[in-house]
Design a protein around this nucleic acid. Structure first.
Lengths: 150, 150
DNA sequence: TATTGTTATACTCTATAACTATA
DNA sequence: TATAGTTATAGAGTATAACAATA
């Protein structure tokens, strides 16, 4: 009968509610390390790899070049990453973690772990696995991994 | 062994990826109606109820008074909602949909339906139900419904 | 004084587009 | 010309805090 369903009738809406809640909590918890969620994603993306060009990072993180540039600025100011010239191509350069950045990643990873564990603890272990599975299916089938238009 | 888990090891991260994808698609689809996702949430929240005060709406939508005020400004400019004085309390007033707003809600609801149906179609019907169930559990157990600190 | 709502300010996130320096 | 990055601009989303009017 109801022509107009409730907002909560949409799975996308529920998803947004939950996602916002988790992200907010995480944002709060990492704010004591003076880092934002997007910054953390970049730091983590640079961990392990020796040096990555902004354009590759942009593809990897699903952001535009401009957005990456700005993020990189902030992290450089904070002394967590470094820009280095390319020998082969003078146009480009590469981004890598500074010593401080390398030290900080495991610390923040701990926060991420805790945040995740706490939030999803209200689900049983099996349910958590089920949720992860469903999300993975959605990610795979939709080819999510960020590929900005740019 | 790995001290630092991948970003994708965190359920919160997966959730954010999927949620962003759904919201982006929806944002695009409603943009042809010149409305944003947050605006849609407010429009839908006002549908049905006759008139709601900004403060009640703030609690309902999980936003601060200031954020509600700004959103209401935009929707008023677009002619989709109206502000009316309260007879009893001269400090407050109430928000309600304009005739145009009332007409627009079912239209946008249709977009929301389609967006949701399309995106989650890659899951089977049973899996969709399972996902909704899990999200509901998280919402209930965490008392999500937005209750900003303000 | 407490409450309702607005306004001012600020910051994150992100996009688009114009621009610079190479290639 | 094409590509790598930066910068300029803009707008959504949201928060905090100061403020005005009323209770």
């Amino acid at each position: 009968m109801s022509e107009v369903p409730e907002l909560s009738a949409h799975t996308g809406y529920l998803l947004r509610m939950v996602s916002n809640a988790v992200s907010h909590r995480f944002a709060r918890s990492v704010s004591v390390e003076s880092v934002t969620v997007a910054e953390w994603a970049m730091l983590r993306s640079l961990y392990g790899d020796e040096a990555v060009s902004p354009s590759i990072l942009a593809r990897k993180m699903g952001m535009t070049k401009g957005a990456i540039s700005k993020l990189a600025d902030r992290l450089t100011e904070k002394g967590l990453i470094e820009r280095a010239a390319n020998l082969d191509d003078q146009r480009g350069h590469s981004l890598s973690l500074s010593a401080a950045g390398k030290k900080k990643v495991p610390v923040i990873a701990e926060f991420a772990e805790d945040n995740d564990a706490t939030f999803f603890a209200v689900l049983g272990g099996e349910e958590q696995e089920r949720l992860r599975h469903l999300l993975h299916v959605l990610i795979d089938k939709h080819g999510l991994s960020g590929v900005p238009i740019d």
